[in-house]
Nucleic acid binder design. Structure first.
Length: 516
RNA sequence: GGCCCCAUCGACUAGUGGUUAGGUCAUCACCCUUUCAAGGUGGUAGCACGGGUUCGAAUCCCGUUGGGGUCACCA
């Protein structure tokens, strides 16, 4: 048995001070997966950390799976997250085209070379034949593998070249397969995982060119990764087992392979590979729900990476991530996508976000809502920056998403339509409505409708009656907001304004079912 | 099943031979409080198992178990 050790070492080139180039290479089959976002992010962070370039390449070699608009959507979503490519199909660059379907002539050229060097061969087996063969092997307890029926005689197979020529001339469809050498040990060093070794006898003669003339992923990505001069390939762990095929191709061409890092997978709560069925996997889903790019990026960055050195930091901006990121500190084990932590991060960002930025987001939402419903409050008032600012400061520690400033606290803009039943039952007694009517008179007498004066007035009103402030506080909250919970009552009343508060109390009383 | 990868609280993780195994989320209790949050304090909770190596292993080695990935003319 011949045992060859193929050693790959690309440190020389990197050490020579070559500019770092990384890539994210999605196929345009739909939305951006959160796992894809993390892969793109790590590529981006590493490139930027190293003062290098991050590139997007579109892998559309499967024409049947191509989805219209997916490419633009992918790039747009990445940019939403703050990941902007230095080179891409949309922005161009010196290594284009960046879409594989536009590079067919290149793959053909390199495939010819492989054919000439006897490192690849034509295969005329039909899909049916292959499937039949596969089933047979499974039945016999063997590993499903191509039976090398069309491997030419001159490279160790059993097919005479006359047969191959005859078949070719008949115009039969064919694919081109790589000839994987027998009993070769393929060894490489993964930046995250360390040394990994494969035996070539477990590797199938991979199809390089499909019968439709398009290359397979394996072939196209190796050619492009080389021609586009990437220094580091950072991708998901699911690609680990195809490394030997890729390395063999680099060897065939005499090319120096880039350094590689295989990222741990993102997992479902049951620890299987993150998938639909068990929750949202599209970044677009999270955008739609109202998550901010800061929170998503921060969260996804921490899934598999940490700063180390005893750091207890949890909240990172993109700039901080770039500064601190390193591939050496990426873990090896898969990470469960834990929505609770994401929600917590989102709250952290809302708590600290400048009000002006929040206003920019919620004002359009409010205006859209005003198209649908009418408000008894003055439109100019409740849509003013000044009013929104007050609402934000009262609510920012109570909402989970920005849109909740409008939905969760809609009573700042619209009349409450219902009054929380539980709250009414708990806070009302036979005298409550009379008490409220009397208190409205007190409120009317207030010249300045401020937090402090409202509070003083309420306490002065309640004390001589031998009542607690709570006897009025809770009913007031329910009448003015419809809810039994919310921000500080006095502050809330001030923001709402005297007129609105009094109107709501009086009209609310009529609707409340007072317990007997 | 073959090959490959992985293994610290429920989750994300720190830890690289000597720590009362630390932090964050979640959870529980208490405090604050008109409510709900936020905040504060404290608690529950973890080195999968078995062998080595060593004066000493979460840390190093081997094995077991468990989990995952991959075995397409898909990426």
């Amino acid at each position: 048995m011949l045992l060859l050790i193929i050693l790959f070492n690309s440190t020389i080139r990197i050490m020579a001070g070559q500019r770092v180039r990384t890539r994210f290479a999605p196929s345009p089959t739909g939305y951006l997966h959160v796992g894809g976002l993390r892969t793109a992010l790590y590529n981006y962070l590493f490139a930027k950390k190293m003062k290098g370039d991050f590139i997007i390449r579109i892998e559309d070699t499967d024409q049947s799976r191509k989805v219209e608009g997916a490419q633009q959507n992918l790039i747009k979503t990445l940019e939403w997250a703050g990941i902007v490519a230095d080179e891409s199909p949309e922005h161009g660059g010196d290594y284009g085209p960046y879409v594989q379907s536009e590079r067919l002539h290149i793959y053909n050229q390199y495939c010819q070379q492989l054919l000439e060097d006897k490192n690849a061969y034509y295969c005329f087996s039909t899909p049916e034949e292959l499937e039949e063969n596969r089933q047979l092997q499974i039945k016999q307890g063997l590993q499903p593998k191509y039976n090398r029926k069309w491997l030419p005689e001159e490279i160790g197979g059993s097919m005479p070249s006359s047969e191959i020529r005859k078949k070719m001339e008949s115009g039969a469809p064919y694919v081109i397969r790589m000839k994987v050498p027998d009993y070769v040990s393929v060894w490489f060093e993964d930046i995250i995982r360390g040394p990994i070794e494969f035996d070539s006898s477990t590797i199938d003669d991979q199809v390089l060119m499909k019968s439709d003339g398009f290359p397979t992923y394996h072939f196209a990505s190796v050619i492009d990764d080389h021609l586009m001069e990437f220094t580091h390939i950072i991708r998901g762990e699911e690609w680990l087992s195809s490394m030997p095929k890729h390395l063999l191709l680099y060897e065939f061409f005499g090319w120096e392979p880039p350094k590689v890092a295989h990222l741990p997978l993102l997992l479902n709560p049951d620890r299987s590979k993150l998938s639909k069925r068990q929750g949202d996997v599209a970044v677009e889903d999270y955008i739609r729900k109202g998550y901010s790019s800061e929170a998503i990026v921060n969260f996804v960055a921490l899934l598999g990476w940490n700063e180390g050195e005893g750091s207890e930091k949890e909240v990172y901006s993109m700039e901080e991530l770039i500064e601190k990121f390193s591939l050496e500190r990426v873990g090896k084990a898969g990470a469960v996508f834990n929505i609770d932590k994401l929600n917590w991060l989102e709250k952290q960002y809302i708590k600290n976000r400048p009000a002006e930025k929040i206003i920019q987001v919620i004002k359009p939402l409010l205006l859209a809502e005003l198209e649908k419903r009418t408000s008894l409050q003055q439109r100019e008032v409740i849509t003013s920056d000044d009013y929104l600012l007050q609402v934000i400061e009262l609510m920012r520690e109570r909402v989970g998403f920005e849109h909740e400033f409008v939905t969760f606290s809609s009573y700042f803009f619209f009349e409450p339509e219902t009054f929380e039943e539980e709250g009414v039952k708990k806070r009302w007694n036979a005298d409550t409505n009379d008490l409220l009517r009397d208190f409205v008179i007190e409120l009317e007498s207030l010249e300045e409708f401020s937090t402090e004066l409202i509070e003083t007035k309420l306490k002065e009103f309640v004390a001589p009656k031998g009542l607690k402030a709570a006897a009025l506080i809770h009913p007031l909250r329910i009448l003015t907001s419809g809810l039994s919970f919310g921000p500080s009552l006095y502050h809330m009343l001030e923001v709402l304004g005297k007129e609105t508060v009094i109107r709501r109390i009086l009209s609310g009383i009529e609707k409340i079912a007072v317990p007997v």
